[in-house]
Design a protein around this nucleic acid. Structure first.
Lengths: 342, 342
DNA sequence: TTGTAGGCGTTATCAC
DNA sequence: GTGATAACGCCTACAA
């Protein structure tokens, strides 16, 4: 079964291929109402579907958007195992699909590989989640296509930016613990990288402590990876070696789950014995037992906004200047934090 | 910055474009070793990256694979919110990327829309998760490209098939409850559709009961959607109105989480008061508290196998005959089921 | 308003 | 071995 081409439609409708192209691409001022109707009818009856490859060859637009997702810090190449990313990708896909764009999500082993993909496939735009090596950004700029950075504090006017106030979130979380009577507060976190969200959350943690007059204790910072396993490990350590710690701020909900499990394995209960607060409010967080107290960011909204922002940039509706969209966050009080009297 | 084309390379290397194409596409028998080397060198130095659009125009291959993901039964268009799907998509992406293919994952509002996508983008193959209307399969066959059905019992020799023995899984789960002394066993499930995995799991449930001489009680079947919320609802109902029920088989882990929470809200504890067994063994299941006893399928392996199988089909390495790959499953005994003496 | 024709970047078929 | 050249399907000046 050969595909129906524009030629077939032209022949069937008894007009030139140019007319078909005009009619079907909104340039209807160039076609009489009558032929327009006829063309639409025959196109439909022949079930004509344009070939994007051919189209992109001439006008360089593919309606394809790339999404770069970090391979997690433990070198896990399964890009969507982190539910935070799946939620975002889901939202982006949903929004983009409505506008007749499609996504190519991919993890990144080597930066080069991704640059290549972008050129090969003539991507119309890219959404990048997380932070990478500096050189990647330089190469990305060479692409000359709209790019959105999500959850990154890389500051370059070439890129559009979308995120939340992570430092403020870190403060909110820590303060909530403090407000509930806690003063020995551990931080369990993924690796603190320059320009990353984790760094800011960490800063928020320190800021809140300082504000409350609590001395920052480096021994209370457990930095490794954003993973359940790291949480479990630290949960056990705290249960076994730090009876004085009464509150834990985990910089991602996934870590919180691990911490709570690790604690439990050593006989400590949350929130009865120790309070835990997370960050992100992924879907599982409200389903967890106990439902997790956390800093909520509207992950779906973030994805949708990113998609819209990118679309605007592609269509040139947006200035070339640096802009950063900052979405609101919110403290979700659930059941993993308990008030104590010290 | 104009892109480097094959012409540029030809000029720089002082050969024809045909030579470039030969050299770079493995048809090296047609090029002398010397020119081959020169071509490779200049291509690299010019950073030449072929344009897939142009390529696909002539040879109809795009190295693009579509993945169709069900929008969940509660009309949630966020295709990856179900962690089961994210795990699969992740695995597929990972495997395909290794072979220089990319994925376009998408939910499906209307079948037509997806068929169009496939034609527009000249997809090389499609992986379809779940089941859909009969008419979709007919249209899909028209596409004449390799298609893999995952988690479907649609029986058509056109499609390759990959899945598990869901009925057996349902039996395993139910029997495990029975073996632990339970006899009043509820089934909490997504909608039981023809040719779907849920139907088979349901059959397994009935089969196990029958085998054990336990009368099947329709009032114990709570059918709605594969969602946390459905689980919560039913958990409460069982806690409040069915004190006699001691064991629950939920046909998906997501449902189990809900059931356990619902139960807890009404003061019933798992596994002390009621035992719960799930199905799938998504990542969260071992992180849940209590760690969920469930029927494990290797979701990642499933995705990888699907990708490999599809690649084989695309490369014609596989017979045209109907084949079904059935992956193993396993009972994971964790902590949500307790032995009782009745 | 409509049609002709050139070109987008590749690959593949021929001659040479 | 190597190189023109004709497709592939579409868009878009430019002509008619």
């Amino acid at each position: 079964m050969k595909r129906t081409t524009i030629k077939d439609v032209a022949k069937a409708a008894g007009v030139s291929i140019a007319a078909i192209s005009y009619a079907l691409n909104g340039k209807q001022s160039k076609v009489s109402a009558e032929t327009l109707a006829r063309i639409q009818a025959t196109a439909a009856s022949l079930n004509y579907i344009p070939d994007f490859s051919a189209r992109s060859l001439v006008n360089k637009r593919t309606n394809l958007i790339g999404i770069i997702i970090p391979e997690t810090e433990d070198h896990n190449p399964m890009i969507l195992e982190n539910p935070f990313y799946s939620e975002i990708v889901s939202a982006i896909e949903y929004e983009l699909r409505k506008h007749d764009y499609h996504i190519i999500p991919t993890g990144m082993d080597k930066a080069k590989q991704y640059i290549d993909l972008s050129i090969q496939r003539n991507l119309d735009g890219i959404i990048i989640i997380g932070i990478y090596t500096d050189s990647l950004y330089e190469e990305l700029k060479e692409l000359k296509i709209p790019i959105i950075l999500m959850d990154s504090y890389v500051n370059d006017t070439y890129f559009k930016n979308i995120g939340i106030d992570d430092e403020w979130g870190g403060r909110l979380a820590t303060s909530h613990l403090i407000d509930n009577g806690h003063s020995r507060i551990a931080l369990v976190t993924g690796s603190i990288k320059k320009d990353g969200v984790v760094e800011k959350r960490f800063l928020g943690y320190k800021g809140a402590l300082e504000e409350a007059g609590i001395r920052y204790n480096q021994g209370y910072v457990f930095e490794h990876s954003i993973s359940y396993e790291h949480g479990v490990r630290v949960g056990k350590i705290i249960a076994d070696q730090h009876p004085e710690i009464s509150g834990i701020f985990a910089t991602a909900d996934m870590i919180s789950f691990g911490v709570i499990s690790g604690l439990l394995e050593e006989g400590k209960r949350v929130p009865e014995d120790i309070s835990v607060i997370g960050f992100d409010d992924i879907m599982m967080s409200r389903m967890f037992i106990p439902p997790l107290t956390t800093i909520r960011q509207d992950i779906t909204m973030k994805g949708i906004k990113a998609a819209q922002y990118l679309l605007e940039a592609i269509q040139g509706d947006v200035s070339e200047d640096f802009e950063k969209i900052v979405l609101p966050i919110e403290l979700m009080k659930r059941q993993s934090v308990r008030r104590i009297t010290s």
